[in-house]
């Protein structure tokens, strides 16, 4: 055994996971996923030009553009992160089987949970890095545009003789639509939702026979996950609408098995200029972590006895 592999074999779970994650990350980067950032840059800049000559009072000049930048940017981030987390995760296991890398890794004293966790972490690092880069770009565009708008608004307010407190109120209102902590929280919520999808895709890929199957099922679950809360409410308010026992049981199973993505729609509220309390983000993070841990353990449970 070479001297470079010894520390890995003898090292802790954490070290092994990090090495596998690094490898998965490199593998995905070589697939040129970062080219997407060029598309994102075009979208972020193009969203600046949707300044329609519609109704705007002097005190809300340009506010719609700020909302447009956030809406387009966070929408693109959501699409990119969900697609990347599902497709990349769905691709990793079959690709390792195809390249025969999986046999090499599993032939070494590498626990299968470390392998799965490492692969998932690699995908999550890639999603995180991509989102962070998009976030920086969005924040820069938003900062430049909101400064321009604020300058216009203050000049307008001063020309109309607004008192200082009213100007400060206007400034604060515009700042709500500019780059702020709530927006960073919304980007993190996008990451959490993508993390849940990646861990779910990992679970599906452990018993799936093809990448396509994993991808399709994961996307279906993603969309259905936005209705999960409706099913849960239908179960909890059972009897009020006169549903039968079968409908209630179906609603219960539906809400127990599928993830709930409606809580992540808090991103929409941030785009509309509302503040996201830190506790909400903490709770979303805990829920995201809970999903990721459970789906990874469940993946290991299936993968542990899989023959290759």
């Amino acid at each position: 055994m070479s001297s470079t592999t010894q520390p890995i074999a003898r090292g802790s779970h954490f070290n092994r996971i990090l090495v596998i994650a690094g490898h998965a990350f490199t593998q995905l980067v070589r697939m040129k996923v970062f080219y997407f950032l060029a598309v994102f840059a075009v979208i972020a800049i193009a969203s600046n030009f949707f300044d329609l000559p519609q109704h705007e009072g002097p005190e809300s000049i340009g506010m719609n553009v700020l909302r447009s930048i956030k809406s387009w940017s966070l929408g693109t981030m959501t699409l990119f992160s969900v697609v990347l987390s599902i497709v990349a995760t769905a691709l990793l296991l079959p690709k390792d089987v195809e390249d025969r890398t999986l046999y090499t890794i599993l032939a070494k004293p590498v626990p299968r949970i470390d392998y799965l966790a490492g692969k998932l972490l690699g995908v999550l690092i890639l999603v995180f890095v991509s989102l962070a880069m998009m976030d920086v770009l969005m924040t820069v565009v938003l900062q430049i545009r909101s400064s321009m708008i604020l300058t216009q608004q203050v000049a307008m307010a001063q020309s109309q003789g607004w008192p200082q407190d009213a100007i400060e109120s206007l400034r604060a209102e515009t700042a709500q639509h500019g780059p702020n902590w709530a927006l960073q929280g919304a980007v993190f919520a996008v990451f959490l939702r993508a993390s849940i999808m990646a861990s779910l895709a990992l679970l599906i890929s452990t018993f799936s026979t093809s990448t396509l199957f994993t991808t399709i099922i994961s996307f279906l679950i993603y969309f259905i996950g936005h209705f999960q809360a409706d099913a849960r409410d239908a179960y909890l308010q059972a009897g009020q609408a006169g549903e039968g026992v079968f409908a209630r049981m179906a609603a219960l199973v539906f809400s127990l098995v599928l993830p709930d993505f409606q809580n992540f729609n808090v991103i929409d509220a941030v785009i509309e200029g509302q503040a996201m309390p830190l506790m909400v983000l903490v709770k979303l993070s805990l829920i995201g972590l809970y999903y990721a841990v459970f789906f990874t353990i469940a993946s290991w449970f299936v993968f542990a006895e899989k023959e290759f």
């Binding site: 849960r232 809580n263 808090v266 509220a269 996201m276 709770k283 829920i287 809970y290």
Partner: peptide, 20 residues
Amino acid sequence: TRLPLEKSLGDELRKGGLAP
């Protein structure tokens, strides 16, 4: 186990006007 947690968060978001 997650159902009550998600429901309470959903209610909190609706109450705070953070969930459409």
